[in-house]
């Protein structure tokens, strides 16, 4: 979906676009698969922390492109890590040259003191309430794009948040859903209170899930077309270009970082672009624009990623059979009852 010019009056400040980022596994390549890695995290220096390939130029460009186009953006980070490591993370963001408008950490100590050990691992209640709190601070009418990963519960949290703000979930349903997930009752009440205060509007346009665990894309089908599972930030960048948040130059910078900093090859990038197009998250016209621009700069192979010749008839029939573009965010209708049941079964 391409951002249209807002119908603002002269002199009236433009509504900002809100970009919300999860930190671990979405921005930072945090390794906490083993206990040893988990214990090491608080002692890591900012320069030891590694960003997910391509994320730094992507975020920088979200701000720069908006500035070029006279739009405002706000970038927020949300982490399930305790505030004790906030200093190192903030320094890391500064090292990467990332400007942000807010960052929130999870007060684990508070849960420990209160003996609420289940809340240490439970993220849905924490993140949902923080998202709602933050929503109350941004100008109403602001559109949001959310970024998470496939490790914990980001898809369900972000979808719940999007549907709450859009008014698709009522208070009683929220209680039922959060109870089924196992959210702390106090946090459920807090979420309901906050949700009641939030102005109902279709705010969230897209949810990007970084497939760090290589979760099969089909697993996210139930979340609807608003959610885009992406295997790398080049795929995300191409979709953000289509939505008008990035320029082709910005996508190029993401591609360059992947090639120069992470060992990607033009073939790997070409395959990524073809994949996100085949999965229906990027339209052919946008894919062609990205491909031609990057080819001209030597970042994609000259030939098609799969090479070979295709007859005109073949191309015509493929075009006719092509999947329709993803539906707009407003078309999403999620069956949370089924979703939560499946989500709990996986966990």
């Amino acid at each position: 979906m391409v951002l249209r010019r807002s119908k603002q009056r002269a002199g009236e400040p433009a509504l900002p676009v809100i970009f919300r980022w999860d930190l671990d596994k979405t921005y930072l390549k945090s390794e906490f698969d083993s206990l040893r890695e988990l214990v090491r995290i608080p002692f890591e220096k900012p320069e030891d922390k590694v960003a997910v390939p391509g994320v730094v130029p992507l975020i920088r460009n979200l701000r720069e492109v908006a500035a070029q186009r006279g739009r405002a953006v706000r970038i927020y980070f949300m982490s399930a890590s305790p505030p004790q490591i906030a200093k190192a993370i903030k320094e890391k963001l500064a090292l990467d040259g990332i400007e942000y408008d807010g960052i929130v950490f999870k007060n684990q100590l508070q849960h420990l003191v209160r003996g609420k050990f289940r809340n240490l691992r439970e993220q849905v209640g924490y993140k949902l309430t923080e998202l709602l709190k933050s929503r109350l601070t941004v100008p109403s009418g602001s559109r949001e794009v959310l970024f998470g990963d496939d490790w914990e519960s980001d898809p369900i949290i972000y979808s719940l948040y999007a549907d709450l703000v859009a008014g698709r979930i009522v208070s009683d349903d929220l209680d039922e859903i959060l109870t089924a997930i196992g959210v702390d009752p106090q946090l459920i009440v807090e979420a309901q209170t906050l949700a009641a205060e939030v102005r109902r509007e279709p705010a969230v346009t897209r949810i990007y899930i970084n497939l760090e665990r290589r979760t099969p894309p089909t697993n996210f089908r139930a979340f609807g077309p608003r959610l885009v599972p992406a295997f790398n930030y080049f795929q995300t960048g191409a979709c953000l270009f289509e939505e008008g948040h990035l320029t082709l130059g910005a996508v190029t910078q993401v591609a360059e970082e992947l090639i120069n900093g992470s060992g990607y090859t033009p073939d790997r990038l070409a395959n990524s672009l073809a994949d996100i197009t085949r999965r229906g998250h990027l339209q052919q016209t946008s894919a062609i624009a990205v491909r031609e621009y990057l080819r001209a700069r030597g970042l994609l192979p000259r030939r098609a990623p799969h090479g070979g010749r295709t007859s005109v008839w073949e191309r015509l029939t493929r075009w006719l059979r092509a999947k329709p573009a993803p539906a707009a965010a407003g078309d999403a209708a999620i069956n949370y009852e089924t979703l939560v049941t499946e989500w709990r079964a996986v966990r």
Partner: peptide
């Protein structure tokens, strides 16, 4: 692609020639 969508895979390593 329908089969790929249902399994874990790395798209960077796979091209499809139709």
């Amino acid at each position: 692609q329908a089969v790929l969508n249902g399994v874990a895979y790395n798209p960077e390593q796979i091209a499809i020639h139709h």
